[in-house]
Amino acid sequence: MNTWANIKTIAKRELGAYFSSPLAYVFIVIFLLLCGFFTFMVKPTLLDRGQASLTMTFFMWHPWFYLFLVPAVGMRLWAEERRVGTLELLLTMPITTWQAIVGKFLASWLFLGLALVLTFPVVVTLNYLGSPDNGVILTGYIGSWLMAGAYLAVSCITSAMTRTQVVSFIVSLVICLFLILAGFQPVVDSMNEWFGSRVADAVAGFSVITHFDGFQRGILDSRDVLFFLSLIGFSLFSTSVILRGHRAG
């Protein structure tokens, strides 16, 4: 019970930190603008397609939005603590490093979830215009949130590696770009040509695109869920190793 109380306290503080700076509002506004723009303005638009589905007009863009938005959310998590020196304060309090890592991660993940929930007008519009399969939309949202969590966990690692937020941002952006491109169709096609389908499939297996695909089509595959969760778990574990490394000197 104590563990959860500690995690909750950390997460609460972290969420407070987002909303006491302009970062949270800037992020939400930009994310919503991008979603609206790409869904209703970029051809083929939702209306052009004439289908009551969000797959190709809304969720399809999320991996790309997250590519630069999520590292921006995650970059301050540890880099800022190290720069200001509050890391020393935090880790000498009666909590484990794990509780701190999970608390901070959950706060940011909930924040991303909130931004995602605020796109609900798109769903409302769709339901007004036609009769979409809301189950498919729900799995799309779940997949999108899991994917955001995976990006975020990667940003946790890069944030723990440096005192400089910009460095963290760029490095996590590059890693996330790899996570996208490994399953991006043009890249997969070239890989096929160069190394054969076995290698191409193996590499594509690491991509968030490959695993996000099922969610968009309404399939809740345990393997896909497991992929994202294990990516998150592995990244948070790496974060703890890096933090311990700093302290050991």
């Binding site: 930190a17 006491s20 700076s21 200001v84 020196g85 020393e88 304060l89 000498t92």
Partner: peptide, 13 residues
Amino acid sequence: GYLPENAPAYTDM
């Protein structure tokens, strides 16, 4: 109770 060098504190609170 610990007061680290340079007395860090969360500036956003």
